[in-house]
């Protein structure tokens, strides 16, 4: 095909300009974020410090500086906090291992067949088009007590007769992994799609075996994709409470931070505890993300 006109180098052109129009563009969105993102966060912090109204009913709290709320929730929910991060880490790694070959195949190997590439991408995001809850429910049924999977496992004596699959950490982690695979595959694909294959040829030209070309060239170059993929997967998993809830794949033994926040907020109406847990989850994620981004040298992701 002919050279397309849109690949100009960015020299003196394309330098961001200064103009007052920018205020008009920024203000509505910024006001929105201020009102509904920043102030709610402040609300969350003040709520996390509230104290119960003396002699008040359920869900009645007054402003206060109860820093003890934090100590209380850490003591009370240490197990769920640790579990959240362990599950999220395992599920993220599993999703990465599952997605990388697919992303590589679509982004690099299938490059010469754009139609096939498009179709496969559609398949990757297809799970997005059906309700998250319906998908999770489907797994619940498939892993159910009398499902053929359970029966198969019982018949082959991997599962004892009185054991259930549902409610086990394995099934919860499986569900978490499944639900967030597209979040991992897409950024990986976007990155690998831009991989310059002549670099791979240069690698093999310079006597590298395919495996060492992969570890020395492909993998390091795909790090930005891995970083955004792992972040996009880890963060929602750490806060998820659908998969691990009793209505779906979990049991009380697999409750995660999200489940605790949900039940404190929406059921017990212990707003301060729920808020304290939320603030801690957010703080932990911000710290983890900034360390992670710095470590992998992908600050420009922001």
């Amino acid at each position: 095909m002919a050279q397309v006109a849109t690949r100009a180098p960015r020299s003196a052109a394309g330098q961001p300009k200064k103009s007052r129009i920018v205020l008009l563009l920024l203000l509505p969105g910024m006001i929105y974020l201020g009102l509904f993102f920043i102030t709610p966060f402040a609300s969350l912090i003040t709520t996390s410090l509230q104290a119960p109204v003396l002699g008040g009913g359920i869900g009645q709290y007054q402003p206060g500086l109860e820093f003890g709320n934090y100590g209380f929730v850490v003591n009370e929910y240490m197990e769920q906090i640790v579990r959240s991060f362990v599950y999220a880490t395992i599920a993220t790694l599993l999703a990465l291992a599952f997605s990388y070959p697919i992303a590589y195949f679509i982004g690099v190997r299938a490059r010469k067949h754009p139609v096939l590439q498009g179709l496969m991408l559609t398949l990757v995001i297809a799970p997005f088009f059906i309700s998250f809850l319906l998908r999770t429910f489907a797994w619940k049924e498939l892993f159910g007590q009398d499902s053929w999977i359970s029966n198969l496992l019982r018949d082959s004596a991997i599962l004892a007769q009185d054991q259930y699959l549902l409610g086990t950490p394995i099934v919860v982690i499986f569900g978490l992994t499944y639900n967030f695979i597209p979040f991992m595959t897409l950024p990986l694909y976007t990155n690998l799609e831009r991989l310059d294959t002549s670099l791979l040829e240069a690698g093999s030209d310079l006597y590298a075996k395919p495996t060492s070309t992969f570890w020395k060239v492909t993998f390091p170059l795909s790090l930005p994709g891995i970083t955004s993929g792992t972040l996009l997967t880890f963060i929602p998993i750490a806060g998820d409470y659908v998969t691990a809830s009793r209505s779906f794949l979990g049991s009380p033994n697999t409750a995660m931070l999200g489940n605790v926040i949900e039940s404190n907020y929406l059921r017990i109406q212990d707003y301060p505890s729920a808020s304290a847990l939320s603030v801690m989850l957010m703080a932990a994620i911000v710290v983890l993300v900034s360390i992670y981004i710095r470590r992998t040298g992908t600050e420009d992701l922001l």
């Binding site: 806060g239 994620i285 911000v286």
Partner: peptide
């Protein structure tokens, strides 16, 4: 970077 549960609770 904000988990939905935090945003929802906030």
């Amino acid at each position: 970077a904000t988990p939905e549960v935090v945003m929802g609770a906030g």
